[in-house]
């Protein structure tokens, strides 16, 4: 017994040392709000919420899937889809390459199927790190395919958005993705499908003015900026600064534009409860 105790104590010690070594290699990232520094692993473990000031940081799409779905239930769909740069826009190809390297994604949208408390769903997440989560032809196409997949398989559809809007570099092709995604969502809903749209910081412009505003149920994270025209554009138009909290999730709730505000750590349970009532 004594020998076993020694071994197990040693194992704990080693594990701690290994963890410390691992943490040591991790990047340190400061909270942009309170400036407290945390290891990247700590950010991940805390779902990108600052442990000190509780500010919400952007969540990488993969991590969002992990936080929402049952363990190992995620199966990616349409990973190969990427844009062909329709306008042959100067510098765009390089931007795409660097964003692909940075995020490990082909474009800003991660699509797939998965389970929430054992209930199967079609789920997609816009990753705000990829060209501000903007919607061009690749994002639009993936959203439509995911929606058509949900329709065909009779699954509830959940999309987390975080986006600066339509992708400028693809011009009118991007604007058309608004029509295309809205049309697909409309068909899905008319066939009886359940679409839960989850708005995170920020959801703006052409994304907020298309599929993201068409949820049967619209949920939002606290404090998320949700708008059509961004605060800066409005300030320029009206020539005055906007009041505190304008266009934030709480403001939209008050003005009747969303169903409820859900804390990040409660999202999985809330989605699960909603799904339970749509069996």
């Amino acid at each position: 017994m004594l020998l076993n105790d020694i071994f197990s104590q040693r194992k704990i010690m080693w594990d701690r040392m290994a963890q410390k070594r691992k943490r040591g290699q991790e990047k340190v990232k400061a909270c942009p709000k309170c400036k407290t520094e945390y290891y990247s692993g700590e950010w991940k473990e805390n779902q990108y919420i600052c442990p000190t000031c509780h500010a919400y940081m952007p969540v990488p799409a993969k991590e969002r899937m992990a936080n929402i779905l049952d363990e190992n239930s995620f199966k990616e769909l349409f990973p190969q889809i990427s844009t062909k740069d329709p306008l042959d826009f100067d510098g765009y190809e390089e931007k795409l390459q660097s964003n692909r390297k940075k995020t490990g994604m082909q474009d800003a949208f991660l699509a797939g199927s998965g389970k929430i408390n054992n209930q199967k769903v079609a789920i997609g997440v816009l990753d705000g790190r990829f060209l501000m989560g903007s919607m061009g032809t690749a994002v639009g196409e993936k959203i439509v395919r995911l929606t058509e997949y949900a329709k065909k398989k009779n699954l509830p559809l959940i999309i987390f958005s975080a986006s600066g809007g339509a992708r400028m570099q693809e011009g009118l092709f991007s604007l058309m993705q608004m029509a295309k995604t809205a049309a697909a969502i409309e068909q899905f809903k008319r066939k009886g499908g359940l679409f839960i749209s989850c708005l995170t910081n920020p959801t703006t412009g052409g994304v907020s003015a298309s599929y993201a505003s068409l949820g049967d149920i619209i949920l939002a994270e606290p404090g998320a900026l949700i708008c059509f025209a961004g605060p800066r554009v409005i300030e320029q138009t009206i020539g005055q600064t906007l009041p505190e909290g304008f266009q934030r999730a709480e403001f939209l709730l008050e003005h009747g534009m969303i169903d409820c505000i859900v804390e990040r750590k409660d999202f999985r349970d809330t989605l699960s409860s909603i799904l339970q009532m749509h069996l």
């Binding site: 889809i81 990427s82 329709p86 032809t137 196409e141 092709f173 295309k180 049309a183």
Partner: peptide
């Protein structure tokens, strides 16, 4: 629906 559905420009 197909008219707008087909507006794409991507590698697949």
């Amino acid at each position: 629906y197909q008219k707008f559905r087909e507006i794409d420009h991507m590698n697949d």
